[in-house]
Nucleic acid binder design. Structure first.
Length: 482
RNA sequence: GGUCCAUUCGACUAGGGGUUAGGUCGUCACUCUUUCACAGUGAAAACACGGGUUCGAAUCCCGUAUGGACCGCCA
């Protein structure tokens, strides 16, 4: 491969990015970077009825957040623009006409209603619901007449019948299909816009795309595209159809069964590093001998190869994403994690003015977090000014004579300390234990209840370190009054 | 219904003629931590089925079953 690798991500701007699309974008990006090639973003906005305001901006924003950088695109200049298909209409029209001249395409004048009826009948009779190619029989005179009457028309692909189309997919291998099974696809719609099939072939060629990496759902349209490439006398790019992302029930990942928008995951506090890492491993793996699954973007770029892309779909397993996210949260730079966490503290109504306090809180709870939106639940404890003791067992434990002796001792020792770190507290506990002879469960359990109201939670020394001696003493005194 | 594609532990997957079929998540047990979690150790857990080819098949071939994608003037 001497020519420079050029790949593209070509979403249609319909509102939000589906994680499946995002994974496709990621694969394109990894492939481009691995091969020192170019990654192009092209907006496939040829369906006017699906236009959504702000969708393109949103798309670009999401790619930026995730660090999937493209070299050419709507807001990046390149030599192959414009990168909005809606701004390339004359190009498609010209190419459609070229096909008419070559007798590889033809005019068709059926109305949507007629097509609907055709399909209904076909379905009723158990036939294939494809277009019956009837307009192929129109005479030049008829066509000219309709055109003169300004009758709405589409341009359809004239599929060469009785041939075999063969192509090689880098993921799936060789695929063969008889052209008799291929629909005379609409190439140019009656509103003058191209369909995906025409636009994608024309643009991929004109933009010098060397490798088409896209979702598996496209594989059945490849033969149409191959016919187009042949008709134009263009070289067919390399193709790689990557497996779909699946719901737990193995159907195509859909909204009905959970979140599909990248924004949803970002909002829940999944870190972009975890998201990228996780998605890369869905349908791809680094191959033999690799036991780790945690990879930075650079490592992914270095390791990525289409030859290790899986041939079948992959279930989007949220449990594993949670685990991976927690791994990143645990090892993340604390200051950076704090920056990312502040919106989540705020969202749950916590005072975020004292950053060093938040940092202490974060460092003790991060180990418990699968995602950042769990911060509130875990952090709540540290913002309380009173501990509520619910269970009767806990109350009676606090009323125990030994408990009182221990608490009083601890209070005395803490009063001598201005601030208290984890080691200080461990020492205090050791001393108290030695002096009173109370140890083990009798020592720690009441203490935990007094300081948290619960029998489980973060390690006591870390807890006290965040509380500080003053607050700790207060809680102990409160407990003494129970 | 038609076309195309797929099938290794519950999930993601490695391996691809001779392996005790390996790893990660999850599950369970034990250890550590006098809690939960973390960490550590270990366990249970898979080649869809039937025929070939072969000395030998999870691996190659054929069929069956199951699953999926697509079948729009959507992308």
């Amino acid at each position: 491969m001497s020519e420079q690798v050029r790949v593209r991500f070509a979403p249609s701007p319909t509102g939000y990015i589906h994680v499946g699309s995002l994974r496709t974008a990621l694969f394109n990006y990894l492939f481009a970077r691995h091969n020192n090639g170019k990654f192009i973003l092209r907006i496939e906005d040829t369906d006017q009825s699906r236009y959504v305001d702000g969708a393109v901006e949103n798309l670009i924003k999401s790619l930026n957040i995730l660090g999937i950088e493209y070299d050419e695109g709507p807001d990046k200049k390149g030599d192959y623009g414009p990168y909005f298909q809606s701004q390339r209409l004359d190009i498609y029209k010209k190419h459609a006409m070229e096909l008419i001249e070559k007798d590889m395409a033809y005019y068709a004048f059926e109305t949507p209603e007629e097509l609907e009826e055709m399909k209904r009948l076909a379905h009723l009779e158990g036939r294939v619901t494809a277009y019956d190619r009837r307009a192929r029989n129109l005479t030049h005179e008829e066509i000219q007449k309709y055109l003169n009457e300004n009758k709405p028309y589409v341009i359809r692909l004239k599929v060469p019948l009785g041939e075999e189309i063969k192509f090689n997919d880098l993921v799936k291998g060789t695929i063969k299909i008889n052209t008799d099974h291929i629909d005379d696809q609409v190439l140019l719609k009656s509103d003058g816009f191209p369909t995906y099939h025409l636009a994608n072939v024309v643009d991929d060629h004109l933009m010098g795309i060397t490798h088409i990496i896209r979702g598996e759902e496209w594989i059945t349209s490849v033969p149409k595209h191959v016919i187009l490439y042949n008709a134009f006398n263009w070289e067919v790019p390399e193709m790689a159809h990557v497996p779909l992302l699946l719901n737990p029930d193995k159907t195509k990942l859909s909204k009905r069964q959970g979140d599909v928008a990248v924004e949803d995951y970002l909002q829940k506090g999944y870190l972009v590093e975890a998201l990228n890492n996780f998605m890369a491993l869905l349908g791809w793996n680094p191959g033999e001998g690799e036991t780790s699954e945690i990879f930075s973007m650079n490592e992914l770029i270095e390791k990525f190869s289409l030859s290790h892309v899986q041939v079948h779909g992959a279930v989007f397993n949220i449990e594993k994403l949670n685990w991976m996210n927690n791994e990143y949260i645990k090892s993340y730079d604390l200051d950076k994690l704090l920056d990312l966490s502040i919106p989540f503290f705020e969202r749950d109504g916590f005072d975020t003015s004292d950053k060093s306090f938040l940092k202490k809180v974060l460092s003790t709870i991060r180990v418990y977090l699968n995602k950042l939106d769990e911060i509130g639940d875990q952090a709540r404890l540290f913002f309380q000014n009173e501990i509520k003791i619910e269970s009767a067992d806990s109350v009676s434990l606090l009323q125990n004579e030994n408990t009182k002796i221990v608490f009083e001792q601890i209070i005395i020792k803490l009063q001598g300390l201005k601030d208290i770190n984890t080691d200080d507290f461990k020492q205090v506990m050791k001393d108290v234990s030695n002096e009173t002879g109370i140890k083990g469960k009798d020592l720690f359990k009441p203490l935990r209840i007094a300081l948290t109201g619960s029998e489980s939670g973060p390690e006591l020394p870390m807890l006290v370190n965040v509380y500080g001696s003053e607050k700790t003493i207060k809680f102990l005194r409160d407990a003494l009054k129970v």
